[in-house]
Every structure is written in structure tokens, then in C-alpha cells.
Design a protein around this nucleic acid. Sequence first.
DNA 1: CATGAATGAGTCTTCATTCAT
DNA 2: TATGAATGAAGACTCATTCAT
Lengths: 201, 201, 201, 201
Amino acid sequence: MPRVTPEHRAARREQILAAAIGCVAREGFHKTTMAHVIEASGLSAGAVYGYFDGKPALIRAIAERAVGSLGETLADIADGSDPVTVPGALRALLERVEQLADETGGAFPKVAVHAWSEATRDEEVAAVVRENIDRVHAVWVRVLDRAVADGGLAPGHDHPAMARALLSLMPGFLLQGRIFGMVDLETYLRGCTELLGATSR
Amino acid sequence: MPRVTPEHRAARREQILAAAIGCVAREGFHKTTMAHVIEASGLSAGAVYGYFDGKPALIRAIAERAVGSLGETLADIADGSDPVTVPGALRALLERVEQLADETGGAFPKVAVHAWSEATRDEEVAAVVRENIDRVHAVWVRVLDRAVADGGLAPGHDHPAMARALLSLMPGFLLQGRIFGMVDLETYLRGCTELLGATSR
Amino acid sequence: MPRVTPEHRAARREQILAAAIGCVAREGFHKTTMAHVIEASGLSAGAVYGYFDGKPALIRAIAERAVGSLGETLADIADGSDPVTVPGALRALLERVEQLADETGGAFPKVAVHAWSEATRDEEVAAVVRENIDRVHAVWVRVLDRAVADGGLAPGHDHPAMARALLSLMPGFLLQGRIFGMVDLETYLRGCTELLGATSR
Amino acid sequence: MPRVTPEHRAARREQILAAAIGCVAREGFHKTTMAHVIEASGLSAGAVYGYFDGKPALIRAIAERAVGSLGETLADIADGSDPVTVPGALRALLERVEQLADETGGAFPKVAVHAWSEATRDEEVAAVVRENIDRVHAVWVRVLDRAVADGGLAPGHDHPAMARALLSLMPGFLLQGRIFGMVDLETYLRGCTELLGATSR
DNA sequence: CATGAATGAGTCTTCATTCAT
DNA sequence: TATGAATGAAGACTCATTCAT
């Protein structure tokens, strides 16, 4: 006989997760203490441990949230009915990045970078990040396939390899654009688009 | 009259730094303890603190080493006498990345990612990373200028913006190629080159 | 809804403080380690740090306790209804010193001396000691005023200056009587009384 | 065949001692590190250890110096040919205290207090302090004897007990006058003199 | 004798986690 | 379930002392 509804549990988890994401954005995974999270969540130590098995579990949940938020947007483009172009898909993806960053008060890009870093030492985090990259890679391949079908791209290319290069444009924007504030979205998109169109030996 | 030469001091610093880089590659900055570094360096606690003011100072030295190792290669290309092409410069840069990764037993890419992560919370590390990005960006702009002069690239583009996109290709390769082992250098370079040559609207 | 009452908190603080005073009496402020205090208090490191912010805070609390225990007795004499004499007031004060020393197993005089010593380097401890001296000085002035009013002392003296000399008799007894065991209370009081009564040019 | 003269050795010891006294005045015995002393002395670690057996030995030498500087002045008065009065002797003693304090840049009173504090835990320091107190006490007794002989003091008093009270006036002045700056020499002397002359029941 | 780099036990403090209430 | 006081192992850093040069 559960005294609390599943909705209540989910809301509590969300409350803790949101607080923890804020902390991690500020201090990184390993400089964020459980005491910080407990304080920020407004709950008690016991409560937090009632919803997450411990700090590693919390880290994994945060990492999952941070890197698992992107695939859908690109998938919508790749599978939508409008003609597909690479610059168009890139714009949609990076606008989503901007939106996520703004919605989380700037936390999302920082937590994503922390997740990459943590992936080098925690195999479970690595699996989460890897899975997300694979998903986005697959969608980029579909975007390229559609672009050929829609006539915006010449056929005969190695789409999986090209998708790797395209995939790089997102972390590159996260770092240069959102972490270091060196470039804004429109300039970055213009640079990407001009680069794609340039004939370069 | 010092009994130890400045060379000896430098060698000791290097010994500590190398040990610390190995530790950080394995565990990240904040899961690496000073005890780990001390153990790995083969020196005593006091000795390590004689060469570095404390953990933050050590972290900054590691970050500097990790991100400060790239600009020269690209600069050599941009300023050399051979005709400059974007794919050629990219190959040179990424081959240098591979070489650094191999020379450090795979530590370099991981430490670089940790440095990006740390840059979000330590302003001094941020300055180091930012400076390095700026330097590489400037070189990419020179590469693009030279490519136009050498006839390999149409004029009239926004080179600084394009350089931002080109800059993204390196961290993207670090993550997908060296951290996650999803793509090898040749495939990645082919993907990049095909993407650059493709006319894409 | 706190599970522990404020009384419980106060009792714990007292427990730690008492243990720490014992340690400091034996070893002084800076040869007393937090580990000593933790061991003597019977609590854990974390618990002690939950009640005191750190070693400096503990030192200040100890100093406050050690030097803040004297003023009341003398004030009672100065403001009581019985005729006031200087020797009487002095006896009351030094008997209180003896009582405090005995109650604390000899700790009080030693901790007081450590507090004077610490006052030369910690401005907060200095403030505590200074405040206590000022309080006792003020009471001595009142004692002298009352002694004149009660006819036991000739008028026309510089009471604040005399109070400085009277104030010296307490630390002098602490050192000679309680720290070094060179003189007992009755002998010391007799010496003081004879000195006061002597006409001395 | 000593390569250095005894004078050279003595000068070196003095150099170290003076540096150490400055350090101890600032930080107390146990917050003064050997590194501080080494730095302040301008010598090397090895040199300092060549002249003092270790920190405890240095502490004892400092304590000895700090508390062993007073007896002579008072002895000169007690044994001189001028008529002896208690206020006169007290003035001579406290003027000597002032002079020592000034000569040492204010270090002497602070180091003296640190020595009392240290005497509660180091039996060797205690012996040094005790011996000095005994010496000064003996001189005060002689002063009182002479004062009676010279007609300035009524006979029949318990001179050893009175000497205890008189002895207290010096540490009291050190604390109130020199450590806490609450009273100047002339005011303090006036207070002492008025107190001695007052008929007090 | 003098030097000062090196040592390593010891110090203060933190923090993930538990459990009595 | 919820609380938050308590735990104690582990962390960063210090410092008295030594000894090869």
C-alpha cells in the first residue's frame, strides 16, 4: 500500500534532479557535494537517499538527462515532410541546443561537458553518452540520405563518415558558443554553411 | 650556491607533471588525489608541494600542458611554403592529435576533455583553454586566407566564422575518435573532406 | 521538527568544550590537536565540527569561558549591602579563583594563561580578554568608591589607577599560587593586606 | 682545530635567537615554525640546527632570555647605597620593563607571556620561569628589609608574603600596560603608590 | 662547516552515507 | 516515510628534521 503516489515520487525525483543539475553546472560532478544537492533540493539527506541510491546513481541520472535531450529534434527534421537540407537540419539542432541552454539557465551545456569528462572514468556514464552519440549519428545519416533524395546533396558520398563530421559541429558550438561565449549562433551557422558550400581541395 | 641545477628542478617538475597527467587521465581532476600523484611521482608529499603550490596549481599546470600542445602544427602548415588546402591542414592537425594521444599513452585526449570541464568552474583554467582556442582559431583563419591565395578556395567567405566550424572538428574527433573509439582518423578525415566538397543548400 | 532539543545541542557543546578545556590545560591551544579534543569528547570528528566551526572557533570559545568567569563575584561584593573593604573584596575574588580552579581540576588557571598568550596573536581572543579585564576593572573602581563611602578608605585617590594595581593581584596569584604553587591563598592575601596597610613612601 | 672562533659561534647563536624572538612575539611558540626562524635568521636550516638542538631547545633558550632579563635591575636598587622605598624600587623595575620592551620592539612582554603559558606544559621552561620568579621574589624581600632599615616602612610585616603581592605588579603591568595598552607607566605607578599608601581595612 | 631538497608522520577538515527517532 | 545528527575514512597540506653534496 504505497502511501505516496507514483506521481509524487516522480515529482520528488525531478525536484532533486533539477537541484542537482544546477549544482553540477556550477561545480562539476565531483566538487558538488551531496550536502549541496540536499540543500538546493530543499529536502533532507534521508529523503534524497530515498530517491537515489547514492552519488554515483545521481551522477548517472544527471548525465542521462544532460545528453539525452537532443536526438528528438533532429529526428523530427529527418523524418518530416519538408525538404531536408544539411544547413537546415543543423540550424534546427543548434536552435534546440540554445533553447535547452536557456531553459536550464545555462546549465545544460556545462553539464554536457562534465558528462563527457565523467564518461572517461565511469563506464555507465560512458554508455549513456555513447548511446546518445550513436542515436544522433544515426539521425544525421538519415538526414544525409533524405538530402540526397530531396536533391539537395549529390549522391555517392560516405554518409556515415560525413555524419561524424556533422556530429562534431554540436560539441564545437557548445564549447565555443555556450561555454566560452566566443561565437553566437547565427555567426556559427553561417560559418558552417559557408564551409559546406565551399569547394575545397 | 644551489646544489641542484635549474635543469634538475625542471626535470623534477616534469616528473611530477607526467605522473599527475597519468592520474588525471584515469580519474579526472577531482578524483585524482594528491596521494595518487605523490605515489605515482615516486616523490614525497613535501617534495611535490615544493614544486607545486597545491592542487589547484597542479591542475592548472596540467590543463596548460594538455591544451597548449596543438597550435604549432597548424601554424607550420598555414605559414609554410607548400600550397595550403583545408583538408590538408585538417589532416596535419588531426595527425598531430593522434601523435600526442599515442605519445601520452592515450592521456592527452582525456585530459583535454577534463580541462574543458574544469574550465566551466575555474577561471584560470578557462583562461588557458580560451587562449589556446583563440590561437588555433587565428591559425585557421590564416589557413583559409592562404587557401584563397593559393586558389584552392573561392574568395568572398567569412573566414573567422568558417574557422569556428573548422575548430569544432578537432574536439569532435577527440570525443568520437579517441574517447569513444567510434571512428578512426582516416574515416573521419574522409567524412570531413566529403562534407567540405559537397554542395549543400 | 528537530529531533534534538536546544538543550541537547547545548549539552553537546558543553561536552565538547569541557573536553577541549581539559586538553588545552594540559597542552596549550596549539599543541592540543582536534584529534585530542575529538577523542576526549567521545564524539566523532564530524560531530565536533558540527558544533564548532573549526579550531579557531573552539579556541575562542575556550578563551571566553576561561576569562569570562570572574566578574560576577566581585560585582556581588561591590554592589552588596555589607560594608565594602578592599581586602574583603580581594579575598572574595581570589576565593572564587580557587573555587574555579578546583572545579575544573586545575584547568582554569592554566587556560587563562594560555588565553593571555593567545590574545597576543588572535585579535578575537584579545577582544574577549580585554573585555573581561575592563569589566573587572570597572568593578574594582566601584569597590574603591564604596570603600570610601563606607569609611574604610580615605577619599581623594585616583580610583581608576588604583584599580589597575588591584587588578594585577589576580593574575599574579594565578601565576605564583596556582601555576607555580609558590604561595597559598591565605599567605598571599596576608601579603596583599599588609602591603595595603603599610605606609610606604 | 676549530675553524670558527667561539665569538663567531656566539654571534651566530645570538642572530638566530634574536630572529626567533621576533617570530615568537608575533606568532607564539607553537605557531612559529622552524622555517620562519630560518627565514628570519637569514641562515640555512642546517645552520640553525647546528646551533640549536631542535625546536624545544630553541624554545627554552627564548624563554630563558625573555624571563631572565629583570632580576639585576631590582637587585641594584636593593643593594645600592641610596635609601630604599617600595615605590622607588617598583618604578625602577617597571622602567626597566619598559626599556626592555622598547629595545625589543615590543617583543619582550609578549614572549614573557608565551613563556608563562609554555611553562604550564614544559617542565624545563617552568624551571626557568620559576627560578626567575624566585630570584625577583628574593630581591623584593631584600627591598622590604632595606625599606624597614631605612625607615620608610614600619617593621613587623611578613616580608616574603608582601613580596608575593609586589611581584604581581610586574606581570599585571605587562598585561594591562604592554599587551593590552590599557594603562601607561606613570598612571600605573601612581595607582600602585596610592594603593600602598592608603589605609585600608 | 654550510646548504636546502627531501622526507613522511601528523594536522585540520570534509563529506558520502546511515539510522535512531 | 521523513528527518538530520552522527559517523569515520579519506582528503589536502604542513613542518621538524636529516643528510648527500
